[in-house]
Nucleic acid binder design. Structure first.
Lengths: 230, 230
DNA sequence: CAAAAGTATTTTGTATGCAAAACTAGGAAT
DNA sequence: ATTCCTAGTTTTGCATACAAAATACTTTTG
């Protein structure tokens, strides 16, 4: 008889990895922050062993950097890193769009349309957090419609590295309106099953987003962006 | 003065990860094979701790699968997984080609041309191992010419999952000649800096490769490809 | 006082120990 | 014989212990 009482919680190292990932993505653990093992293991109430295993996983995902004999720090992206990462994301989203246009069902399209309208509502209210949330969900749905779990996993991994930047980024009214117009076009291209059109739109859409983030990095000085030399 | 970090060997978990990755990629550790901690730690002369850390990294890379309370096994790909993975690789190589066509220098082009001729020599001699080696190097060089380390890293990670299949795959003369012709065209498109042309060629080139591997999977029955149910 | 040197403390990296879960195998009951 | 149970063994997962490296601190010396 299998136990029904306790929810078979997943392994501790997975749990810890999930929580750390969350905190990095949300920016609570800022880029460059040192991951002190003793401190974190006390905070999370686990021993150092599963904690270290989790950190190694995050390192493989590119979210933290391992410094030999000096522990781990939250990965810090140089401006060039941001440019490169957006370039890859743009390509991956382009792929998603191209495949989604070929494979999307009417139900999925209807759901994306619905999310799109909700997003328009958020824009109308100038509710940036809601807008971002819906925006993320739309992109995730397009990705899902591509029906390629490997693509989804790859996209999520690369995306995670940028999330903390995106969460903080701001939009001037002009950029915001452009983004909304591009989203309009996305829905139309999806409905028309225009694979290459959607691919191109998504690529340029992401490059616009990249420029917005870069602008923020330049002016806002969110945090240090220099990587230490090898 | 920074140390030339040559002799001070890298951390054990990195070392172990490298060696296990190697053995998985080369097929020495076959898909589905169980990674017994005691056995491996004895074989590699390390304790279980760094071994487990290495395994967690490989899991994050998608090379091994973690089974809760039952250890880790070398990742096994279903036929659908192979299809999906090749689809992603095709997109990533397409990206590489597109960017490489825009950014490649004459020196890099000359090197690729040289490798291409060496590959023609290997084809002429029907030396399949040498052909594959050179083929890999050409694709890696194109990727490098794209000048995007994030793209390179992503590509390598996804590629690693397929390497063991590719190493074993065979080519009938027709497919081989087609591949060689496509490689000819690649060099020409690179020389002409035809970004979108090269992208499209690389995508279709990879899809041909995919079909070759799938054929092998069907007929050859290399090893079991079914994933166990959850 | 500043720089250097030496010492103490912290932190990381690896090994080992221990408990719980998963296998194995040998019967007992049907 | 097949299924079920149970005791013994193995294996995994986590915690802890110990050694080496790095950092912080103090003292010494110019």
């Amino acid at each position: 008889m299998t136990n029904l009482n306790s929810i078979p919680r997943q392994a501790l190292h997975q749990e810890v990895a999930t929580r750390l990932r969350q905190r990095i993505i949300e920016g609570e653990l800022a880029p460059g922050a040192k991951l002190n093992e003793r401190e974190l293991s006390e905070r999370l109430q686990v021993s150092r062993t599963p904690l270290r295993e989790a950190v190694k996983m995050l390192a493989a995902e590119g979210l933290v950097e391992l410094l030999p004999n000096r522990g781990a720090v939250v990965a810090q992206m140089s401006e060039q890193d941001v440019i490169d990462t957006f370039e890859v994301i743009a390509g991956l989203e382009g792929m998603s769009g191209e495949l989604a246009a070929k494979r999307i069902t009417e139900e999925e399209l209807a759901e994306i349309r619905a999310l799109h309208f909700e997003m328009l509502a958020a824009h109308s209210r100038r509710d940036l957090p809601a807008y971002y949330r819906l925006n993320s969900r739309i992109h995730a749905q397009i990705n899902a419609a591509a029906r390629n779990p490997v693509l989804t996993q790859t996209w999520q991994t690369v995306n995670a590295r940028l999330q903390s930047l995106r969460f903080r980024s701001n939009l001037d009214e002009g950029k915001w309106q452009q983004a909304v117009r591009e989203h309009d076009a996305m829905v139309e291209l999806l409905a028309a099953r225009d694979a290459s059109g959607l691919r191109e739109l998504l690529v340029s859409h992401l490059l616009v987003k990249r420029d917005a983030v870069l602008e923020l990095l330049h002016s806002g000085r969110l945090y240090e962006t220099r990587k230490e030399e090898s």
